[in-house]
C-alpha cells in the first residue's frame, strides 16, 4: 500500500519474472546440494539466464590455466553460435570483462568500434545486435564470464544486470564448490575440471551424433535428457558412451 491508501501499480510481467527468478534460484540451490555435475549445473543456469533476461542466446566462458578463455556452457550447441563464443578468446566484451573483472556491455554492436573482428562476426551471424558480459567473480578477480546475446539493441536495465550478476555468482559458486564438496582442492583444479569435462562432452556428442545420425545439438539434447531421466551426471553418461558401456540406442529421441 502506498501512503495515500491506493493500491500500488503492479506490473504483471514484472512479478511473473520475480516468481520465475525465485524458482530458478531455488532449483539451482537444490542442484548445489546434491553430488552434481558442473556442466549440468551450468547448462541449467544458462537456460534460466536466457529466459529471465529475455536473451536470444547465452554462454559461459572460463579461463584455463594458460589464461585462454574457453566455452563451458552454451544455450545453443549449434556450431555457428559456439564459434561466436569462442571468438571471444581473442577479443570482445567477454575478454574485457574477464580482464577487468567488471561487467562490459555493447548495447549496439553496429555502433561499437571496440572489437572490429568480433563485431563483424556477430553482425554477419545476423541474430544479435547487443552483447553483455558479466564477470564470474572471485575475490576481486574473474575466473570467466557469462555472456548474454540480445537480438534488439539497447543497454541492459539495472534490474537485469543485477539479476544477471546474481546468476553469474551462482555459476562461480557451482564451479568452485563442485569438487571442494568431495575433496579439499583448490580453484585451479576446479576450473581445469570444468574445462576437461566439457571436452569429454564434446567427444561424446560426436559419438552419439554419428551413431544416431543426428546433429550435434540434438546429440547434446539426448545426452542431457538421458542423464536427467536416469538421474545420472552428464559427464558420467558421456564417459560411458566413450568407453562403449552405453550405446546410442539407449538414447531416446527428444519428445516432440
Amino acid at each position: 500500500m502506498t501512503t495515500d491508501g491506493r493500491e500500488p501499480v503492479v506490473n504483471a510481467a514484472h512479478t511473473d519474472r520475480e516468481r520465475s527468478a525465485s524458482r530458478a534460484f531455488v532449483e539451482l540451490a537444490d542442484t548445489l546440494v546434491d553430488d552434481y555435475d558442473v556442466i549440468d549445473l551450468l547448462d541449467r543456469l544458462i537456460a534460466h539466464s536466457v529466459h529471465l533476461l529475455a536473451a536470444e542466446a547465452a554462454g559461459i566462458m572460463l579461463a584455463d590455466n594458460h589464461g585462454t578463455l574457453r566455452m563451458v556452457a552454451s544455450s545453443s550447441e549449434a556450431a555457428e553460435f559456439m564459434e561466436l563464443l569462442q571468438l571471444q578468446a581473442g577479443e570482445g566484451p567477454c575478454m574485457d570483462c574477464y580482464r577487468t573483472a567488471t561487467a562490459v556491455g555493447a548495447p549496439d554492436l553496429a555502433r561499437d568500434p571496440r572489437w572490429p573482428g568480433f563485431t563483424a562476426a556477430v553482425l554477419a551471424h545476423g541474430r544479435f545486435r547487443s552483447v553483455h558480459a558479466l564477470p564470474l567473480r572471485l575475490r576481486g578477480d574473474a575466473i570467466g564470464a557469462l555472456n548474454l546475446f540480445h537480438r534488439i539493441p539497447g543497454p541492459l536495465p539495472a534490474d537485469d544486470l543485477a539479476l544477471g550478476q546474481a546468476l553469474a555468482d551462482v555459476a562461480t559458486i557451482g564451479i568452485l564448490s563442485e569438487r571442494a564438496v568431495r575433496r579439499g582442492t583448490v580453484v585451479t583444479e576446479q576450473l581445469q575440471h570444468a574445462l576437461d569435462t566439457r571436452i569429454v562432452i564434446e567427444q561424446a556428442k560426436g559419438v552419439l551424433s554419428e551413431q544416431a545420425g543426428v546433429g550435434l545439438d540434438e546429440a547434446f539434447e539426448r545426452l542431457r535428457s538421458y542423464a536427467r531421466h536416469h538421474n545420472l551426471r552428464l559427464a558420467d553418461v558421456a564417459r560411458r558412451l566413450l568407453d562403449r558401456t552405453l550405446d546410442a540406442s539407449a538414447f531416446a529421441p527428444r519428445p516432440r
Partner: peptide, 17 residues
C-alpha cells in the same frame, strides 16, 4: 590447446565410424 570443440566432436565421430 584452445579446446576447439570441432577437434573433439570430430574425434568422437571418427571414433564411432
Amino acid at each position: 590447446l584452445s579446446a576447439r570443440p570441432e577437434i573433439h566432436q570430430a574425434t568422437g565421430m571418427v571414433l564411432a565410424q
